[in-house]
Design a protein around this nucleic acid. Structure first.
Lengths: 195, 195
DNA sequence: AGGTAAACATACCAATTAGTATGTCAAGTT
DNA sequence: AACTTGACATACTAATTGGTATGTTTACCT
């Protein structure tokens, strides 16, 4: 059995994913675990710090890990891309996950205007993801994979946008097929970049 | 001076855009207008119906109008695309608007798991937007603009995803430049589709 | 054995929330 | 002139919220 703090983090992460941060009643979440507010406020001073911990300890590591393969891309850029896209597909493999959408995007829509702590953290995670892709693209370009006139920074933003956007549109449409189509198009797009 | 109901709609729309639906205190919003809850509940039976009215009367018409040019696209597809992208840029022309993000995406992340009425409406709006793009792409294809092997449905989803995703990433990064980069890439992508 | 601190539980509270019940007033309608 | 109706305002409530103050228990340390 996992320790209480970790379980509080995970259960509240799920609740946030389902209801949004503002929709979560943190004490009800822990009550469903069979414990009380006492435990919650023992480990976290308040609701926002609980949210920060979820971002720092769960979300950030998870997303950085998904995009990590890019950092080691060179000649094999195409394979790496397929890897990452596969991770994302795994990430949203059930219909329910499609309906809930991307946790990062969810929070990015909800929180930045409301809280500075969330804003900074979401900014940093997104920035790091973008850098990971950009690094991969640059390495691949140096390795001669891509045309020389292409712009790695722009392309990195485009990859991020298309994937996160695809996740979002799939949520709106409640259709995994929509997400798959975006992935297919993204692969095609990447082929077009090759030298 | 505009009538009270319309003003309630607009002011609450802004509040939702800023705080999310769950974050809006509808009575405070009308209080800032100088009126009271009496007026609010006179025109709308409850908070959700107010939300529905905002979707039906403000958001849906707005988005459908933005994407409408596609429905008349043929040989001029490139021009039409520039038109729509320009509308989007207009839509997010201030830094503040970038920071708040796309109202449609915001609500799409927040509401569908919480309420069926929102879910259906957001689904329908997105679906209609996708159809508009798809129609344009098909017409352009028939007019000989595109390669025959391309898939209009997939491409329509891709356009939507990239644009909405670009908006979302720009919000996370608090950078209009990020949005501009995605738009630039999308234009380039479209060039590649041409015959 | 006595003391201390971590890990919770219990009981409570002040503020806020959506929503309601009732009242008022001006503009038509008959 | 009496009556109705639409357009609000005022005052209230029941439920919920995040958060706190105060136990209690168990493990550990000396």
């Amino acid at each position: 059995m996992t320790d209480t703090r970790t379980e509080i983090l995970h259960k509240n992460y799920e609740a946030i994913h389902r209801n949004g941060f503002q929709g979560v009643r943190a004490d009800k979440v822990v009550a469903e675990m069979g414990i009380t507010k006492g435990a919650l406020y023992h480990y976290f001073p308040n609701k926002f710090d609980l949210g920060y911990a979820i971002l720092d300890e769960l979300l950030a590591p998870h997303y950085l890990k998904i995009w990590q393969p890019f950092e080691r891309a060179e000649k094999n850029f195409g394979v790496v891309l397929l890897d990452v896209l596969e991770s994302y597909r795994d990430f949203a493999k059930t219909d329910e996950e499609i309906k809930l959408g991307c946790p990062l995007t969810n929070l990015t829509q909800e929180m930045p205007p409301l809280d500075e702590g969330f804003r900074k953290r979401l900014h940093r995670i997104t920035h790091q993801m973008q850098l990971q892709v950009e690094t991969g693209l640059k390495n691949a370009q140096l390795a001669g994979e891509f045309k020389l006139d292409f712009n790695p920074t722009q392309t990195a933003f485009f990859y991020l946008s298309a994937i996160e956007g695809g996740f979002s549109v799939a949520k709106a449409m409640q259709s995994r097929a929509a997400f798959e189509m975006v992935i297919a198009q993204l692969k095609q797009f990447s082929e077009g970049l090759k030298v």
